[in-house]
Design a protein around this nucleic acid. Sequence first.
DNA 1: TCACATATATACCGATCGGTATAATATGGA
DNA 2: TCCATATTATACCGATCGGTATATATGTGA
Lengths: 213, 213
Amino acid sequence: MAQMGRPRTFDRGVAITQAMHLFWEHGYDATSLSQLKANIGGGITAPSFYAAFGSKQALFNEVMERYLNTHGRVTDSLFDTALSPRESIELTLRRSAKMQCEPDHPAGCLVALGLLSACTDESKAISQPLADARSLNRARMVECVERAIASGELPTTVVPEALATVFDSFLLGISVLARDGVPLKQIDDAVTQIMTLWDASCIGRPAIGSGKS
Amino acid sequence: MAQMGRPRTFDRGVAITQAMHLFWEHGYDATSLSQLKANIGGGITAPSFYAAFGSKQALFNEVMERYLNTHGRVTDSLFDTALSPRESIELTLRRSAKMQCEPDHPAGCLVALGLLSACTDESKAISQPLADARSLNRARMVECVERAIASGELPTTVVPEALATVFDSFLLGISVLARDGVPLKQIDDAVTQIMTLWDASCIGRPAIGSGKS
DNA sequence: TCACATATATACCGATCGGTATAATATGGA
DNA sequence: TCCATATTATACCGATCGGTATATATGTGA
């Protein structure tokens, strides 16, 4: 019993990728049904759309799931305990930067930019999984620094949240840079530069210049 | 000749502030005329709106101008040559973080989040002044680092774009953090932390850990 | 008092939004 | 062959979008 009924004229899996690119570029609200229908499988009709995906929101849910299981994986090294904490963070930053600048899909990160999609209160709830992903990444960054402190890689004077927030904010900012067309090399050089912050903390010179205000 | 004709029932300047808060929170596209009309001066009608502001886009232009001349000024220290380059950047980061977490207006920065407003191709053109402001800030960051190198504050081995991009990306990321509800103290502590990067570069230890990947 | 200027209120414009009812069409299994 | 199943195409739904035409109310200056 392979499949009953008239076969659909488009590939559902490919369609989700096409929809992902649209949501990625324009956000949830700003991506209209007309755009989705026009860009899926060379153009489909409204009933075909709803028969295949249920609703715009349901499709977006599938898109988020797809993204988190593919492109979103660039931050997986954050909880790869086979790596040193320093390597975990550096890899996350470099892989994220590279992915976000790839030319075969919209620039930036859907998770970070998903905050923009959440314009309406309604769509804020819809893109909650993206907020959860950001929250999870934040927690993992802190854990990563804590691991480094526990292993003696970083001195106990380092405040995990403070250092982790530096990397987290830097990471989130990459999405805006990528969207603004800043070249990958420049961002990657910045990663190299920011990793010296880790080394500086490593040497046991935390909180230099903490005064000022 | 004080004013001719029937006086309007709302304060135009206050209305622009109210509109700014809406655009700030929801973005250009997602802020509807209905919302604007309902929130301006306790509710106005469509003809009153168009008589006062011309169009949604014209109002948004006034809002951007207002923002850049008020809240957007937190980055002014970037080109205040009375400050040391290090102070310029640190002040920019701290003032930005503080402003973006103030409770009397939406969290985050309209300039950074304006990237989200630009969902449609059309609205991308409309919010071009915000993209220009980001671009300008980027250039000023680089100039700031160059000043430090010229004055001997930073060694000539520092690549201005790389270090500036670190601070720029960190700054842009603050908007997402603030929107996600990360407390100001945590962000401010991160500023303290990231400024040690400057000090580390200052000591003449640039490009540590530049290898890897 | 009366014209003028400006803002207001009511009602409406075409376009698009996300979503659907109805019916025609194409496949597999009995 | 004929039915069940599933997708397709056509046409349409009410709601909202940004914006406007018309008429009325409210002020100033002569």
